[in-house]
Write a protein that binds this DNA or RNA. Structure first.
Lengths: 343, 343
DNA sequence: TTGTAAGCGTTATCAG
DNA sequence: CTGATAACGCTTACAA
């Protein structure tokens, strides 16, 4: 039994020679056109492939027809559980359709975002899923103009044609406020990261203010702060809110999972008791049941979002004809009530 | 101002024509050989590239020299925070060296693992970082035999040449046990997922048993269970442990972050008070300070692990000569003491 | 049913 | 310094 050196990768030509057929036939065999080959030839090709351990070179494959079979995904922060869950579902959806996912983490850095976009373009990705900062860079526009389908997660961008998939932000805020009101809270602090370019953050903030304006029985305020571990600014904002005289029961509404985490840390440090002071966060996290009496959350349908994103890409990939106008898909949040909103 | 159609991607040939030079010169310009071109030509090429918005096609690039500039990474569970943190650091390290990362999530499924490996091979990745199940598949061996550098995270594989980077598992268990002893716990339950093929799990379990055997003042037991949300088996095991008569103070040692999460859920459901019953988990999680009095953990140096993995790949990529034998790099854990081990 | 030949966009090897 | 020209591994008309 001779050990095969298998020094480098074998090519389609080698397979063809080994099987005593032409490259074309092997290519056909691989490209799902086996029905056009005689059984005998199929068998010989299969054997040769087996023998040589042949694997088609996707690079070469992509070169001719332009089918890289690659989808790119830009993630603003890969350590954010929401992003990861969506990423997970995007990857599965891609795989299910024979695509692979090239994942790029931007760490919320616009420079990296532009670089990554250029990179994805250079690998000729057939579509891009973007969950990142916001400013529509030249790179993004170039991609769009070249006809590469783009889908935006959670935040929309003016100025560039792309489908948008995400949460029904206004609906989520409504759901949160309804819950807090029902539980008897009457004074609400909305904590968010600075909205900046992120349309979803803007939308949530805006809706919160609308609700405040609409409900006379309610008072409230907002705090937009950069969230970092053990932020003094956050601690002070929270301290100010919880220590101020207020006859109305108080609650804090967190704009996303990261805010919830940092607020929970800060409240913990301040010795605030959850429930008496309400706490509700957008984004479900796997530890929310464990902190104090449990933290009430609004879960996003991450699975559906990821699938819809890929679905959206695929639709635009299929017909070379005229494209439908940009479309947005919004999903409703799901409330998970826990002790932090139980007075 | 005419709007450029920019229908498709422009090629090096188009740039060459636009600049009135040859393909070769453009290629040289791009390939870091500008010093061999006259300033005049450089300027014209730069202008043409700018004008056409040209981006080299990595696919075509990879075809000729075989340099795909791609590293593959197999992740067993992308929703595991430890994996994500390492992934993050691997990606940064790759980028810093001009490589991109093709990430594949296997969801702990050996089939997917093999498929993904074949996929990575087909994209001619120049190296692979693996953080996944274990059985050395034919695909993995093929990759190794073709000379693709492979580095294993956290678990080693007999039968295939690969560097291994991970935690000093025995040292971590020692650190944990020393801490528990120092805090006065004398009866320890070690909870782990079934070790199966995972060498690191085996190593930790084995060391726990050794420590038990070495310390006469200590009693203990182990529970190896599949961890799933709200597992009955886990709840029963924990219930048995905490409700049994025992004069010696009890503590639970969790083999990894997922175990810690599930154990924390189960203890919560059982109404066990943390601290009185000790709890210590391997892997630091960002909510550990928030659960009850805070959960004591052993943090893995995830950053260092990711960097070392890529470093390892790069070293084997460089010299085409004879390769050094497989090497293993182990890092020490760091103890973060919190209320859950304070009686 | 099978094969021949012409690219796909780059880089590398030669000559000028 | 600069430029033809031949690969690289594969797909795809176009023939036979």
């Amino acid at each position: 039994m001779s050990s095969l050196p298998a020094a480098s990768h074998s090519t389609i030509l080698e397979v063809a020679r080994d099987a005593g057929v032409s490259k074309t036939s092997v290519s056909r065999y691989l490209g799902g056109e086996r029905h056009r080959l005689s059984p005998a030839m199929q068998a010989r090709i299969a054997a040769a492939i087996q023998r040589l351990g042949y694997r088609p070179n996707q690079m070469a494959r992509g070169l001719k027809g332009g089918r890289s079979k690659l989808i790119g995904m830009l993630v603003a922060d890969i350590r954010n559980p929401f992003s990861v869950t969506v990423l997970h579902s995007v990857e599965q959806a891609c795989r299910a359709r024979g695509f692979s996912l090239l994942v790029c983490n931007t760490d919320n850095d616009p420079d990296q975002e532009r670089n990554h976009l250029a990179l994805l373009a250079s690998y000729r990705v057939e579509g891009v899923v973007i969950n990142a900062a916001g400013r529509p860079s030249a790179e993004l526009k170039a991609l769009a103009e070249q006809g590469t389908p783009i889908v935006l997660l959670d935040r929309s961008l003016s100025d560039v044609d792309a489908d948008v998939v995400g949460l029904d932000n206004a609906g989520a805020i409504d759901m949160a406020m309804d819950h807090l009101l029902e539980r008897g809270y009457r004074n609400v602090l909305y904590v968010s990261e600075p909205p900046e370019g992120a349309s979803s953050r803007q939308r949530r903030l805006e809706r919160f203010r609308q609700r405040l304006a609409q409900a006379p029985e309610l008072t409230g305020e907002t705090a937009c702060l950069a969230m970092q571990r053990d932020s003094d600014a956050l601690r002070q904002a929270l301290h100010g809110f919880v220590s101020r005289e207020s006859p109305a029961p108080r609650a804090i509404l967190c704009a996303n999972g990261n805010v919830t985490l940092q607020v929970a840390h800060a409240l913990n440090a301040l010795g605030v008791s959850l429930g008496e002071t309400g706490l509700l966060g957008i984004d479900e996290l796997d530890w929310c049941a464990l902190a104090g009496p449990g933290i009430t959350t609004l879960a996003q349908p991450t699975e559906a979002i990821g699938q819809a994103a890929v679905e959206s890409l695929m639709q635009r990939l299929a017909p070379p004809g005229r494209q439908a106008p940009p479309r947005r898909t919004e999903y409703a949040a799901r409330l998970i009530a826990r002790g932090s909103t139980h007075r």
